[in-house]
Design a protein around this nucleic acid. Structure first.
Length: 368
DNA sequence: AAAACTACCAACCGCGCGTGT
DNA sequence: GACACGCGCGGTTGGTAGTTT
């Protein structure tokens, strides 16, 4: 037996855009009686609408606390960060943005942010670079099935060329370099992956607990290929190119699996907050500070200017350049020569990876 | 000026979950 | 446990406004 429809399609109920009169009726009724029991509400309010339509109209448009107008810089930033963790959990994202509805955020994502990411060559679902835009197939194969010396040499040549004259999106190159990890690291990662949800999208939504745990593992594994070390944080493999990750938290704090949302296998923000890991705390402990270079691509130079003005603001989530902390080596990448320099400080390591974004790879639309 | 195209967003639809019986 | 119901969520559609050709 199927579900009974919320509203009979043949009983003359009105559909389509709401009129001012209908809006007024709905507002007046809710102000007087409150909302609840949406099924009977339209009849009581004298509306020829189904309850579902009334609820939607109220929650998405008529509610007094609805915020109208363009999304602010902070709001957009929050949406991107939350989406990278939660995926299409629009209602959850909306709950973190006062005055914004899930529908509004969803629309904004689909019409603005998503397209911008696509233009940048970033998969808006996984937040990872779209490798189909770059011929890295051989690199990927070698990373997965073992690298031949010639392949390594070719890749090193590519890196060398890139340093002299940037040819491709440095973030894509960074990802490629990260895939050039040693087999032992691959094995470690494989072992780790076996404990992850099967859904690759869900894998991108693993809470930081796994990240911290794996950090501990990987620190113990010396790279046999000294030219290239991994920069991909295992638990956020597809986000590390967007957010430098400073981990200062106690790993044990995140090992409780109850931090997952049972329904969706994503981090449960309520759980995090109830256990002292609200997003604000999150920001303090784990700094998902997007790399400036990435946001250069997101928003152009104005964005960086914007970042500077937000450095001191007290926001729920991290602002891209708000972290004065040097980047942690665990999430950064060393690409350089075979010299003792490889052992130099994290800062030097970071500097090597901080390519200036060549203007020719930026879409002018990214500045819009 | 008009047609074609694009962007935006309100609204609809189907499904799944929680709850009560 | 099975079923009915109410509700909310996420994906999609369709209308409209703006822009380009």
């Amino acid at each position: 037996m199927g579900r009974t429809p919320c509203c009979d399609k043949n009983n003359g109920l009105k559909k389509g855009p709401w009129t001012t009169e209908e809006d007024e009726k709905l507002i007046h009724y809710i102000q007087k009686h409150g909302y609840g029991n949406w099924r009977t509400l339209p009849k009581n309010a004298g509306l020829q609408r189904c309850g579902k339509s009334c609820r939607l109209r109220w929650t998405n448009y008529l509610r007094p606390d609805i915020k109208r107008g363009r999304f602010s810089f902070e709001e957009e930033e929050t949406i991107i960060q939350l989406h990278s963790v939660l995926g299409n959990k629009w209602s959850t994202i909306a709950s973190r943005l006062p005055g914004r509805t899930d529908n509004e955020i969803k629309n904004y994502w689909n019409t603005n942010i998503r397209k911008r990411l696509l233009r940048m060559g970033i998969d808006p679902v996984t937040h990872s670079p779209r490798l189909d835009l770059l011929d890295l197939s051989s690199i990927l194969c070698s990373s997965l099935y073992g690298s031949s010396s010639s392949q390594i040499n070719n890749f090193q040549t590519l890196l060398s060329m890139q340093q002299q004259q940037p040819l491709i999106n440095p973030e894509l190159l960074k990802l490629a370099s990260s895939l050039f990890t040693t087999s032992s690291q691959q094995q470690q990662q494989q072992d780790y992956s076996n404990n992850q949800p099967c859904n690759p999208q869900i894998q991108n939504q693993v809470p930081p607990s796994h990240f911290v745990q794996f950090q501990d593992q990987i620190q113990q594994v010396p790279s046999t290929n000294s030219n290239v070390c991994t920069s991909v944080s295992p638990s956020f493999p597809n986000h590390s190119h967007l957010f430098e990750t400073n981990v200062n938290t106690n790993p044990s704090n995140f090992t409780d699996q109850s931090c997952y949302n049972n329904q969706h296998s994503v981090p449960d923000i309520d759980w995090l907050e109830n256990n002292g890991f609200g997003l604000s705390t999150f920001k303090e402990d784990i700094d998902y500070t997007p790399q400036l270079s990435n946001y250069n691509q997101y928003y152009g130079s104005d964005y960086n200017q914007n970042l500077m003005t937000h450095q001191t603001s007290n926001q729920i989530l991290s602002t891209p350049s708000s972290s004065p902390t040097p980047m942690n080596s665990n999430s950064t990448c060393i690409i350089g020569s075979n010299t003792e320099d490889e052992k130099e400080s994290y800062d030097s390591c970071n500097n090597r990876m901080k390519f200036e974004i060549p203007l020719h790879i930026l879409d002018s639309n990214d500045f819009m």
